[in-house]
Amino acid sequence: MNILVCICHVPDTTTKIKFTGTELDKNGVQFIIGPYDDYALARAVELKEASKGKLTVLNVGEADTEPTIRKALAIGADNAVRINAHPKDAYFVAEQIAAYAKDKNFDMILMGREASDYNGGQVHGMVAEMLDMPCIVPCMTLEVEGNTAKMGREIEGGKEYVECEMPFVAGCQEPIAEWKIPNMRGIMMARKKPLEVIEPTSQSAPTEVMAYQLPAERGNVKMIDADNMDELVRLLKEEAKVL
């Protein structure tokens, strides 16, 4: 099986988000593999090992993303590709991935359901449309039998189980697999694995962030005595008007 996993490079989930003008303030921010991409990567490593296949990891980013890419290699990807560009928006990233993947005969292209920074959730669908492939999102279970992929996803009111022939694209989320933590051997091997840097093939990015806003702070919390739940019920009814 020949698998491509696309990862993004995002602030750690514990980051307190601040901005300097229209840029994220990166001071003191730790960067990680996108948490949803990390689930996709974990499942891809399992499928690759079971099928003795090949796993390529791809990131669209500048040189500062290389530690994140090396981590994906340490987790179990065989080789990596970095498309050397600032990931301007979802369309820009999708065009790079589609251009790279179109003649590589991948059986599946996996990524997270969305990036945890810009939350677009568009790249998987755009790549699939550009390559005329089916796309499943959010992909929460994934098994392969012969040339058929069987997947489960959550829909309104329950779960849907689907199947399609390979190749396909999927935007993954838990519980597709558990995150894998690289071991020392993986980290040592990752240093020697190939990381190819290629230049972007197109430049179109139809969206641009003009300004960031932080959400309004909640007003001061109103403390209620633990023995006075009648008062809480009254406030929820009369003040908050949510009951």
Binding site: M210, L214, P215
Partner: peptide, 17 residues
């Protein structure tokens, strides 16, 4: 205006085209 950083911020985003 879009919700970004999983609810930690909003981005005023200009759409071309």
């Amino acid at each position: 205006r879009r919700g970004v950083f999983t609810g930690k911020a909003f981005a005023d985003t200009k759409l071309e085209g």
